[in-house]
Simulated scan of single mutants.
Amino acid sequence: MATLPRPFLRMAVGLFAALVLTACGSESGPDDTSGADPSDTASAEASDVPSESAPTETETETSPPPSSSSASSAPSTTTEAPVTSPVDDLFLTADEMPGLNDITVWTDAGTKPEGSDPFGDCAKFSLVDSGADEAWIRTFEADGNQRAAQLIATFADDKSAWRVEQVLRGWHRDCAAQLNADVEQVNPLQAAQVSAGKSFTYLLQFGQKDAQDHHFNGVAVNRVGSRLSIVLIDNQGQDYNYEPGQEPAQQAARAVAEKLG
């Protein structure tokens, strides 16, 4: 789950952001369950919370061309000196980060500014370069092939955060091309039942064709007001079986909503 650096020119990023904002302003459809830009009020956020009977969001699974790499792009979990961020209290703690099984014990591996590297296997740009005022990343590690990370980004207003949420949905649609692996499966978006804001999750599976173990990377995206959170929970193994709603990413989405709400 190592970071995949993809440097780019800021002029190109500016053009990309402009095109994305134009597209998001006119886009509607199954990707956006809210159906409209959010207002800047708390009551508008509350109306975004899915009902208990909200259907699972659907996306058409992409069948990508085969390639050779199987590395996941969640940030490295090398332990660093403690850093205090303006959003320290909003991050999940090691105890709050959902485990992949009952014996997972996470350790906080440090917090740092996002930088320019994209966060996650589907990302094309950093969130700071996509319009965030600031973004911070906290990484976690555990025994074996388990790693996790959370990014929290702050935007100028609720609408800016909503627009970048739409960008993240677009990156999910294009994710197969980003994975660059022999076996690639990008599962559909699923709405998460959360106490505040909006949230969706999805699972990535990828690796070498003849490998016994593949990466299973669960992703949870939360938007509450002018903040976005992305949680990545990655495991390299042979299977990934959970009851509906109990997947690590779904558990993370609920926990993040409690912290950001």
Rank of each mutant, 00 (worst) to 15 (best):
M1G: 10
A2R: 15
L9D: 15
R10K: 15
R10M: 14
L15S: 14
L21D: 12
C24Y: 05
C24V: 14
D31R: 11
G35N: 09
A36C: 13
S39A: 14
S39F: 04
D40T: 14
A42W: 10
S43L: 15
A44E: 11
D48Y: 08
D48E: 13
V49C: 00
A54H: 10
P55N: 06
S63K: 13
S63D: 12
P65S: 08
A71R: 09
S72K: 01
S76D: 04
T77A: 11
V83C: 02
P86R: 12
V87L: 15
D89S: 14
F91G: 00
E96L: 08
I103K: 13
P118W: 02
F119K: 00
D121Y: 04
G131F: 04
A132I: 08
E134L: 03
I137L: 10
R147K: 15
L151E: 03
T154G: 12
A156H: 09
K159Q: 14
R173Q: 13
A176Q: 00
A181N: 00
P188A: 07
L189A: 12
Q190G: 06
Q190T: 13
Q193T: 14
V194P: 00
L203M: 09
Q208V: 04
A211S: 14
R227D: 05
L228W: 05
I230R: 04
L232G: 03
D234L: 06
Q236D: 03
G245E: 01
G245K: 10
Q251M: 08
A255H: 01
L260D: 01
